[in-house]
Design a protein around this nucleic acid. Sequence first.
DNA 1: TTGTCTCCCAGGGGGAGACAA
DNA 2: TTGTCTCCCCCTGGGAGACAA
Lengths: 321, 321
Amino acid sequence: MKLSSSGQGQQAHEGENKCLNSELWHACAGPMVCLPTVGTRVVYFPQGHSEQVAATTNKEVDTHIPNYPDLPPQLICQLQNVTMHADVETDEVYAQMSLQPLTPEEQKDTFLPMELGIPSKQPTNYFYKTLTASDTSTHGGFSVPRRAAEKVFPPLDFSQQPPAQELIARDLHDIEWKFRHIFRGQPKRHLLTTGWSVFVSAKRLVAGDSFVGLLVNFCHRNEKNQLLLGIRRATRPQTVMPSSVLSSDSMLIGLLAAAAHAAATNSCFTVFYNPRASPSDFVIPLSKYVKAVFHTRVSVGMRFRMLFETEESSVRRYYSS
Amino acid sequence: MKLSSSGQGQQAHEGENKCLNSELWHACAGPMVCLPTVGTRVVYFPQGHSEQVAATTNKEVDTHIPNYPDLPPQLICQLQNVTMHADVETDEVYAQMSLQPLTPEEQKDTFLPMELGIPSKQPTNYFYKTLTASDTSTHGGFSVPRRAAEKVFPPLDFSQQPPAQELIARDLHDIEWKFRHIFRGQPKRHLLTTGWSVFVSAKRLVAGDSFVGLLVNFCHRNEKNQLLLGIRRATRPQTVMPSSVLSSDSMLIGLLAAAAHAAATNSCFTVFYNPRASPSDFVIPLSKYVKAVFHTRVSVGMRFRMLFETEESSVRRYYSS
DNA sequence: TTGTCTCCCAGGGGGAGACAA
DNA sequence: TTGTCTCCCCCTGGGAGACAA
């Protein structure tokens, strides 16, 4: 069937191991999102995580959830691994993080220099455009903003009349899409024609969703420039759907129990972070957390003592700011 | 967009409370599936439940899961509620069950007569047909097996030439679909033409999936007969997709922790049963379980004593048979 | 009885510039 | 600069019987 076949080109060797392009992930996640660096220490907030899961399952966090006395309101972990993914159905980006709870002794270690903030690599040559009614209509293609086309697309040969080329772009699942890029009309403008409507219906895009285009350099390969594409869905009022696998209560319990079990046994646990689903982060770099708690710069040595002296106070709601 | 609009008729007042037609649910679930009766006592098998969730999340049950010493391998519960549902995306049927763990005293109560087996109501006037390549091709409609059309569809007026009518059917989400039903061709046969291709693309049906048609009588309403329709998807090798909400480990932990917590606090918990996803049931009528354990009929009074004397033996694997 | 093919033809929609915001 | 409209025409795909499994 047309819609279940994905893309027109060769299928990507899809594997969950395959980590998608970091710049593309950030371009789709939005400029406000940054992920903690692998190897650094982070603070994990079970309640913030609960709120994301509750928001995703359209469920209020209620009182049916048992208390986990072993589970503190924030858990200091080492970030063992971060992988970037995109939902198979919706292309929405999310991150999978492996968190290793730290023993009190490990927590007392001084900061590594790298923990003081290497921001995630933000994309440079990219654009996004919110799709108009004309972009998603059955008549005609996608109107590319002029600056975007000039910055991100390969340059057209203006000696041709009209100037046109075939664009090949790969999406978040590494599937190839082809578009005819033409510069025509009166006045002249950049358009994507052939291939665009297939993309719109395959991705089920509607006016209000956004198209993300990104130019990346793979210097280590022979292929120099590569065009990537992604989407940002409009925040629709009712995107959430019932799970049909596990009750939302069990999910919320599972989240807490998994963290509590990992903390008790000093073993790794895994969380999914969906930057566009939840209003608040729940995995924060420890350095950022410490700064936020004290609102001031203090010497490295004293941070931890003060942190633990104050952790019973109001800092618990940090993630919700 | 065409594919996100569902059906052509009025949207149903969709609510999760709304329980779909029991006969339609069973027609889609298949003849082997029957659900325990509300109010009766059932046996819940955490391990069988784990296997379903693991199968759904494409995850093997491994050793990362902590033991729950409070949680027995089977839990005797009263079935507080059963509601039948269909997945919003795929139309696959599943059941939501509320289970109330029973105290040892409650377990000792004698059987109620109704517990000795009222089977779920199986559909009578229904048919299903596995879709052929022609059924799902872009050229032409759906070839209705003759007996099916005669049994389930309203009779055609054969004085017309050709005999034809408009069929109105409601799907698992109570959304209305319209089809032109015509009897034509040489030799004559029943066909669904106009409306069929919209249905195929909206439900994303492919050859190998099955169409389910059902005629029901609503005697309590004025409308006498109603046509319902459903889908059985072909079991595809790779239907499962990563969750992006909660790690499969956390889900498996959550399932066990929720059951253990419910058993400890004597409170209700909720499970989803997907009859087509898992190879084994994990909520069994207590009467059926007792019969299976003893392979023989014994008097009502002695059942429970013997049950508890033997429960440490091999009955644990009952659900996987 | 029904799955597949081919043929026919109408309508949907892609691709173009016009025009205005 | 770019969103929407309309127009034109091609080609996809609904709908029919033929034919054979």
